[in-house]
Nucleic acid binder design. Structure first.
Length: 662
RNA sequence: GCCCGCAUAGCUCAGUGGUAGAGCGCUUCCUUGGUAAGGAAGAGGUCAUCGGUUCAAAUCCGAUUGCGGGCUCCA
């Protein structure tokens, strides 16, 4: 057998060898790479094979390999963490015999950790947080012993028999699910651990350099709530202690930005047990920021030909029976209220605004000349999120959508899509977010789960695609991700610490116009069904505010800051002058506060810094005499004294341009 | 809804069966100062709620509520 081992740059012919392993092949080209390698990338007839392979893989004719070394990024980390998950399971089996194994994959780019393994302990025994250090210690012991990861290939029947004997029914179930005659298993030498696993894995435990177990969580087998719940242990691992430390540091940084913590510290919002879970109280500072955002949105919407509407928070259930929500989203609705005078009638808190906007459309006869109609509303909706899923502002039971519904003719659809794209772009830029677009279309062949005729779907998809192309916005096409009622474009923003959040959506809907029987009179004097577009930019004000708080780490830019500048007199002697300055700036429309406490200037500055106020205006002897303020920028520090009017003009410029930095 | 954990002053948190603590914040007084903490005194708690064990419970047990980490769900 002649096997060619190859380096990306230089091809080296390898002489006749028997059973050349990936490791040996790599070693012949590059001893250093072989030393660092944790797995190998396999090529068959020059084409990269789907799955990477173990270093112990025996090369077949026409195959070549490259080393996967720690600097290979996610590809390497994936193998490495998967192997760490196995190490975790081996340690658990060693410490807690009789534990059943679930699955143990690696996770990449996940805040929860780098891997997990699911377990079931015998006789309802449970892991507690105290167990984590013990397990971690055992993992380190196993690392020190440099134990080999071994791959075993066998028939399905053999594997099933093996796991049955081991008392691993869950593994047997997984094997049953797999197609194909042969399956692979992995062991870690010297431990009781055997796993049904595709691989590949690192050659031995000593490759693992830095580990940390993070948390214990409940998780259902195969994510199915009707199946028993298991205990999941989350952990992470890195190629070096430095990388792990860096990750921990970043995690701490994210925790410092937690909107729930900052919401309390900066007095932005709260929840009250007296009111109920997931129902937000906007405090003056938070509500002010929200008003500023709303005003900005108002301007953008008016300019783009939107009309504002207002609709009630409750409605007779009938409305949502017609829309189909009652049937499909019963679980997510607050329970009904019965009419006091007629038991036949029940009311619901509204989970969506669309049927209300449709009623406005239906309130009179519409001509094609009236279209498009663009109804916008900051509509508060109520969804009964299951207890245990609410999460600060990010997941609330009552929230306010920046909702709009566009009713248009088929010809107008592309234009409306373009308008939405332009709006999305303007708004995300104002807040300093970059973003990505995803076009979700229906399944390529399976059409059963969608409603609406093919030609309408094609029209809608074409309108969205044409819009994206005409606007010049790159996008990812997502097959099989469309809603059952139409295709959509979703937007994901990237925040200051590189996390992504889904915010906006533009959805074409064929269902509701049909269900509610809305129509317009066309130029042909016939009745036609309008096309309806749902669109939200921020999604919900509550969630968007939470994201903004974390994005800015609580330090809002001037145009959003609840207090834009605080006047700090050096001593009581200058309080009077300070009040004058405060009054003058307030009269000019700025949001200004004053600190007349009998504290030293250092303390006043410190407090203003902690409140993240953009500007501090210090007034002492010199400034009082000269009619100036000594300006201290929160970020840049002391930037010198200028006349009050000049500061006012500068602040106005920053505010009006919605500058993100000073 | 489910699994695990947590609940002590406005906030952050000590307190392992025997009369409730700290720092910050708050109030008052002193201090009147030049770019991230001046000093002193004081107020503030049915230890989430309900029940149980005990001579005695913040502390042990059970339930409830809320919060946190996950699972699941997300029109």
């Amino acid at each position: 057998m002649c096997v060619k081992a190859q380096h990306p740059e230089r091809e080296i012919a390898v002489s006749e060898v028997q059973s050349l392993t990936a490791f040996e092949a790599i070693k012949q080209q590059d001893r250093e790479a072989a030393k660092k390698a944790i797995a190998a990338r396999l090529f068959r007839s020059g084409i990269k094979h789907d799955e990477p392979v173990d270093l112990s893989y025996v090369l077949q004719e026409g195959e070549r390999v490259e080393a996967i070394t720690p600097d290979a990024g996610d590809e390497a980390l994936d193998v490495y963490r998967h192997s760490t998950a196995h190490l975790l399971a081996a340690a658990v089996l060693d410490l807690y015999p009789g534990t059943q194994l679930g699955i143990g994959p690696s996770l990449l780019g996940d805040a929860k950790g780098g891997f997990y393994y699911d377990f079931v302990r015998p006789e309802n025994a449970r892991f507690t947080p105290d167990d984590l250090p013990k397990i971690e210690k055992k993992m380190r012991d196993l690392i020190k012993r440099n134990l080999e990861y071994k791959r075993l290939e066998m028939t399905k029947a053999e594997a099933a028999g093996k796991f049955k004997a081991l008392g691993e029914p869950l593994k047997c179930e997984l094997i049953e699910d797999k197609a194909g005659a042969t399956v692979s298993c992995y062991t870690i030498e010297g431990t009781p651990f055997v796993d049904f696993c595709l691989g590949p894995h690192i050659p031995s435990t000593s490759k693992i350099k830095a580990i940390k177990l993070l948390s214990i969580a409940g998780a259902h087998w195969k994510g199915d709530e009707s199946r028993p719940q298991m205990q999941r242990i989350y952990g992470t691992s890195f190629f070096s202690q430095e990388d792990l430390d860096e990750w921990i540091k970043q995690k701490e940084e994210a925790e410092k930005r937690d909107h729930r913590r900052l919401g309390t510290e900066l007095d932005l919002f709260s929840f009250s047990d007296a009111i109920g879970p997931g129902l937000v109280l906007w405090h003056p500072n938070g509500a002010l920021i929200r008003k500023v955002i709303e005003q900005y949105l108002n301007d953008e919407l008016y300019r783009r030909g939107y009309s504002f509407v207002n609709t009630p928070h409750v409605t007779q259930s009938e409305l949502f029976r017609i829309s189909g929500h009652l049937e499909n989203y019963q679980e997510g609705l607050y329970p009904p209220m019965t009419d006091k005078e007629n038991e036949q009638i029940e009311y619901r808190m509204k989970p969506m605004n669309c049927p209300f906007h449709i009623q406005i459309f239906k309130a009179r006869q519409r001509s094609y000349r009236d279209l498009p109609q663009r109804y916008a509303e900051y509509g508060m909706v109520y969804r009964y999120e299951r207890s245990g899923v609410t999460h600060g502002l990010m997941r609330a039971r009552g929230f306010t959508q920046d909702d709009a519904h566009l009713f248009c003719t088929p010809d107008q659809l592309v234009g409306e899509v373009l308008g939405c794209l332009d709006l999305v772009d303007a708004i995300f830029k104002a807040f300093g977010f970059t973003y990505k677009a995803e076009l979700s279309v229906r399944h390529a062949t399976d059409r059963n789960k969608y409603i609406g005729a093919d030609d309408v779907w094609e029209l809608a998809e074409k309108a969205l695609t044409d819009g994206l192309n005409e606007y010049g916005l790159p996008y990812v096409r997502m097959e099989d991700e469309a809603a059952f009622y139409g295709p959509k474009i979703d937007f994901k923003v990237v925040d200051a610490i590189k996390r992504t959040w889904q915010l906006s959506t533009i959805q074409v809907d064929f269902t509701l116009p049909q269900r509610f029987g809305i129509e317009y009179i066309g130029a042909d004097n016939a009745r036609h069904q309008p096309i309806m577009v749902h669109r939200a930019i921020l999604g919900s004000f509550e969630r968007f505010f939470g994201i903004l708080i974390e994005h800015y780490a609580g330090a809002f830019p001037v145009w959003l800051a609840p207090v834009q500048a605080v006047v700090l007199p050096i001593s009581d002697r200058f309080n009077e002058r300070a009040v004058q300055i405060e009054t003058e700036l307030k009269a000019a429309g700025h949001r200004v506060a004053i600190d007349t406490r009998s504290e030293k200037i250092g303390a006043k500055i410190r407090d203003a810094q902690l409140k993240k106020i953009p500007f501090m205006l210090i007034v002492g002897e010199k400034e009082a005499e000269a009619g100036t303020v000594a300006v201290r920028d929160k970020v840049k520090g002391d930037i010198g004294a200028i006349p009050v009017a000049e500061f006012s003009a500068q602040l106005k410029a920053l505010n009006d341009s919605r500058a993100l930095t000073t």
